[in-house]
């Protein structure tokens, strides 16, 4: 019997701790016992592939709702899903959600007194193509206040959920926009210990992929966990 091929272990510098004092809601939502390390079995190296999921046309375009244009700055968010070895992760489900241009989510618990947009829901889905590529059309989300501490504001961000090929490649993250003045004050962004890992959550403005007279463009690549022993590609 062949053993499952393990994935790499996660670095504590690249990911946030379960308890981060400055993000208050972690206080009673983090385990105090140490997690038990387990070897990867067939359970961990397999995962949902969503091969039967059929996306509706328009699920990757958040900028139009019922044929009507949402308010705000229209943007493309595109890039690739890769593993740590730089290989594309094809056919993987990507889910996104975000607030509208004014910084308000379409959710009953969001009481921020900013306007809702009748033409914006803020939910999208897409499946990466054979090269691992994806492209959403949306509007640039606004910054918004939250109750973590006095005068707390979240930098503009889009929530992303990805699965990758295995249970252990699951990633839920937030993608930020370049040069946001709120980074320095945001405990969620700053919960990542490594500065380079924090910077990797920031998208890049990309003039080449803008569409003249239509939309600006931001590029963002995701890097999911790869195999422990990365085999060399031919000619690499």
């Amino acid at each position: 019997m062949t053993e499952p091929e393990s994935y790499s272990r996660e670095s504590k510098k690249d990911h946030p701790p379960a308890f981060y004092r400055d993000y208050k809601s972690t206080t009673f939502r983090h385990p105090k016992n140490r997690a038990i390390k387990i070897d990867h079995t067939v359970t961990e190296v397999t995962g949902p592939l969503f091969s039967s999921v059929k996306l509706e046309p328009g699920e990757g375009d958040l900028s139009i709702e019922n044929g009507k244009e949402a308010q705000g700055q229209r943007i493309f968010v595109s890039g690739r899903v890769l593993d740590e070895g730089g290989r594309p992760v094809p056919n993987t489900l990507i889910e996104i959600w975000q607030c509208n241009a004014a910084g308000r989510y379409l959710h009953p618990n969001d009481q921020h007194p900013a306007p809702l947009d009748p033409n914006f829901v803020g939910r999208g889905r897409m499946i990466s193509n054979e090269k691992g590529e994806y492209k959403f059309t949306t509007i640039k989300p606004g910054a918004y206040p939250w109750g973590n501490h006095f005068n707390a504001w979240r930098p503009a961000h889009i929530h992303f959920s990805l699965f990758g090929p295995a249970f252990v490649t699951r990633l839920v993250t937030q993608m930020y926009f370049p040069e946001d003045p709120l980074f320095a004050f945001d405990p969620i962004f700053n919960s990542i210990p490594s500065e380079s890992a924090r910077k990797r959550m920031i998208s890049e403005f990309d003039l080449d992929t803008t569409e003249p007279d239509f939309a600006l463009s931001f590029k963002f690549d995701f890097v999911l966990r790869g195999r422990q022993a990365t085999p060399f590609e031919n000619g690499a």
Binding site: D14, H15, P16, E84, T173, V223
Partner: peptide
């Protein structure tokens, strides 16, 4: 290796 994308809260 390329650096992985960090996790953030849902």
């Amino acid at each position: 290796k390329m650096g992985v994308t960090a996790s953030q809260t849902v």
